[in-house]
Design a protein around this nucleic acid. Structure first.
Lengths: 211, 211
DNA sequence: GTCTATATACAGATAGAC
DNA sequence: GTCTATCTGTATATAGAC
């Protein structure tokens, strides 16, 4: 990968005002933040670097100082979630631990989840199609339990998806797609929401005998 | 490149006054079919008209004889599913009827579901963001039952999503994302699959008291 | 109904000044 | 670290011949 220079170290050189790692890091993070927002709304392919730059009040060329390409910018946005998820499944946790950790991931990487779940094109551009498929395969396998029958895989997939969707409703990720709540009513959140999501998953994961 | 100027379908040439567009229908449908396949795999924005034309053995310009724009082609592909879905929810069916009809929709419009579920950009380009949000809102409302509390909406969303995901696993819509089955094992299909999906939904939709 | 050729637009990306 | 200016590729869409 090509690097123009190291913005973090250069600012400390002279007698300028303090513009340490702070400034460069701040810009990179603001770029990621704006890019993520636009990717989620318009999709990766439909979002142009011009649009990102305009929103930030800079030019396209300035973007290229921070990221070598549009693809690199996308990867930098999706990487933390994928890496964390892979570490999680690699520990081969039990059902409940896995589900709780998954809900924690949903909470901390909400927007990135929304992006990769709704925009396959961004998965492809980030070269994550295979890795994310493997993640889903592994998660389903762990949820399906030992000696799974076909129906157990179906239930595991359903439970996995139900948790994410229930989270999406409770956190109003797509407000237009959910009925409005009456005055005074509110969705559970925090630890209470985690318990609800866990309970939903366990409902689905009940043994298949009575199907 | 193929230069055949008369594809087929002279069978009804005596009936132009009754079915004037019949000649073009075959070609139009082949275009839709190829377009849908490519949209699903690469996403709407990443699929070029050149790619569609090449796959059909014609040129881009020929495409424009059949569809006024790329957007019109997309709309013609997504319209049948959306229209049918809207008719369905407009009948305000009971839970079980709705779920069975939904599974029927999944079966008959599998690829279109896959497209709009995984590619928000195509929803936007087809100007279906609002309509599909309303469809989901209405479906969730009907699944949540009368006098729903917040938790009932959460359960309804979870159940809705669980059915689609369970269907996707059982029909191996994304084979790489599902663990391989052992020799001789197979997923349920047809009426049996419908019953399984219904049972999963009803598991989730159980009253919320024991959450 | 399909072709060749082209108009037009805008995307991602680079060069070099400041 | 950001700018202006530009290169290059490719996309949608159109014009007009056959």
């Amino acid at each position: 990968m090509r690097r123009n220079s190291h913005p973090e170290s250069e600012a400390v050189s002279g007698n300028e005002h303090l513009r340490p790692a702070h400034d460069a890091m701040g810009t990179k993070e603001r770029i990621q933040q704006v890019a993520l927002e636009l990717f989620v709304v318009h999709g990766y392919e439909k979002t142009s670097l011009r649009e990102i730059a305009d929103r930030l009040g800079i030019t396209k060329a300035a973007l290229y100082y921070h990221y070598a390409s549009k693809q690199e910018l996308l990867k930098s946005v999706t990487q933390p979630l994928i890496d964390e998820f892979e570490v999680l499944v690699a520990t081969d946790p039990d059902r409940e631990t896995l589900l709780r950790a998954y809900v924690d991931l949903l909470n901390r990487h909400q927007a990135v989840f929304q992006l990769v779940a709704n925009d396959h094109a961004s998965l492809a551009a980030a070269e994550l199609v295979e890795r994310s498929a493997k993640l889903r395969r592994e998660t389903v396998r762990q949820l399906a339990g030992p000696d799974p029958r076909p129906i157990d895989y179906i239930l595991a997939g359903a439970a996995f998806s139900a948790v994410a969707q229930a989270f999406s409703v409770a956190r109003s990720v797509e407000p237009d797609a959910t009925p409005a709540l009456p005055e005074g009513a509110a969705y559970p959140d925090g630890q209470e929401l985690t318990e609800v999501l866990l309970a939903i998953a366990l409902r689905v994961l009940n043994p298949a005998e009575n199907l």
